[in-house]
Every structure is written in structure tokens, then in C-alpha cells.
Amino acid sequence: MEIKKTITDYTGVLTLSGRLDTVTSPKLQEALAELMSSSDKIELDFSEIGYVSSAGLRVLLLGHKNASASGKTMTLKNVLPEVMEVFEITGFLDILTII
């Protein structure tokens, strides 16, 4: 998985590509923690993420919780249908903010 970071004003955008799996998820966890210290609004561009496993869900849940706890927001955008299916069956559609 590749992660590209763009920071503008108070918004930090992570553009991800590849697979969010057991091996790659820690990379996102690190990037989110780092961004959390500089940005109030975090956007994750999922347009090139074709696959999310439970390890990926764990990191997204953690990010969402940490953002909420510190009054920040974490938003996912451009989620592909095959990834949306995973969010749907696990109840994550109701937890995450997806636009």
C-alpha cells in the first residue's frame, strides 16, 4: 500500500492505494497518528484501495475513535463498491463517516 500525504490549512488528506491488510495497516495507523497532531480535519481518499481486511477495519476504527476523542473529524471518500461491501456487512457504514 502506498500513502500520499497532502496538508492544506487544517485539512490533512491521505491518498491511499493498494491493499489495506494485516501487513500494510500499521503504515496507515502511523500516518494517521502523525496527521492527528497537525490537522483538525482528516480525509482518507480510498479511490485506489481495492481491498480492506479486518486488520484495516481495526485501524480505521481506532482512527475514528481518536479523532472523535480530540474533537477532530476523519472522513473517507471515493470508496469502491467492493470495499463498501465489507463496511456494510461489518456495520462499519454506521460507524465511519463516508462521503
Binding site: D21, Y51, S53, A55, L80, P81, E82
Partner: peptide
């Protein structure tokens, strides 16, 4: 893509 994804989830 959807089926490949489903199978990948189980396999992982």
C-alpha cells in the same frame, strides 16, 4: 472484483 475481494478477505 467483488468475488476476488470476498475470497481475499477469507484467505487473509
Amino acid at each position: 472484483a467483488k468475488r476476488q475481494n470476498n475470497i481475499n478477505v477469507a484467505v487473509e
